[in-house]
């Protein structure tokens, strides 16, 4: 296979995929592992944080405010601010991704907790539930739809955001896009783009499925009513 036999289509080339599968696989694995780690870590931090802000409403303002300001900071700037301290590589990308996902999640969990029907919490209080037990056993399960929606948005944005990691040399599929741009190899860019979008869609579907499994009491009709 010489370099002279140009692919028939410069944008879509199966030949490229077949020849470079090892490379693509490595980028894809990196992309997936970064996304999963970031979303899981963010969720682990966001749930207690939002719970605390819900129990202590005075904290809610500062928490949401800080989140808003941080969210306004562009990803490139955030990586630029982190990289000198956390070094070039995986840690920097992961911290950045967790921060952005965290902001989406905290907001959504808080919205979900605030949206719980007062009649439900009244009933729980009447049954003698304490504040913390009510949060864990009544309010959080009730807020699940909103939390799942937050996880969906966080997952899809994280998949897209991983690509920005190229600035510190750790961008998953973004690495392929950038290399393709540098060497003017259109098929490489296109393959990485398509894989990235597919990954986002698959991840979104998986989160939706998990959400359905977690909320079996929501019937199909509820869902339709919520979607309308």
């Amino acid at each position: 296979m010489s370099a002279t036999d140009a692919p028939p289509n410069p944008w879509f080339s199966w030949d490229y995929v077949a020849r470079n599968w090892g490379d693509i696989e490595r980028a894809l694995t990196q992309h997936v592992s970064l996304t999963v780690q970031a979303v899981v870590l963010a969720l682990v931090v966001a749930l207690p944080l939002a719970g605390l802000a819900h129990l202590r409403p005075r904290l809610a303002g500062p928490v949401v405010g800080t989140a808003g300001v941080l969210y306004t900071v562009p990803s490139l700037a955030l990586f630029a601010l982190l990289a000198p301290y956390t070094g070039i590589g995986r840690t920097t990308v992961l911290i950045g991704l967790v921060l952005y996902a965290l902001l989406v999640l905290v907001r959504n969990v808080l919205v979900g907790l605030a949206g719980v029907d007062p009649a439900v919490t009244d009933a729980a209080r009447g049954m003698g539930y304490g504040r913390v037990r009510m949060l864990l056993q009544v309010e959080l399960p009730q807020a699940l739809p909103s939390i799942v929606a937050g996880v969906r948005v966080a997952t899809v944005t994280t998949v897209a955001l991983v690509t920005v990691g190229v600035v510190v040399g750790y961008g998953g599929l973004g690495q392929l896009m950038f290399r393709g741009f540098r060497s003017d190899y259109h098929a490489e860019i296109m393959t990485a783009t398509v894989l990235c979008v597919l990954l986002a869609l698959v991840a979104d579907l998986l989160v939706v499925l998990v959400g359905r499994l977690l909320t079996p009491w929501r019937s199909a009709r509820d869902r339709q009513a919520a979607a309308a």
Binding site: V153, V156, G174, I189
Partner: peptide, 19 residues
């Protein structure tokens, strides 16, 4: 909204730039 969120900015930039 959902489609553009799934499409990475970098992808669109590199695609347009190399086009």
């Amino acid at each position: 909204a959902n489609t553009t969120r799934a499409l990475p900015t970098l992808a669109l930039l590199t695609l347009l730039a190399s086009a």
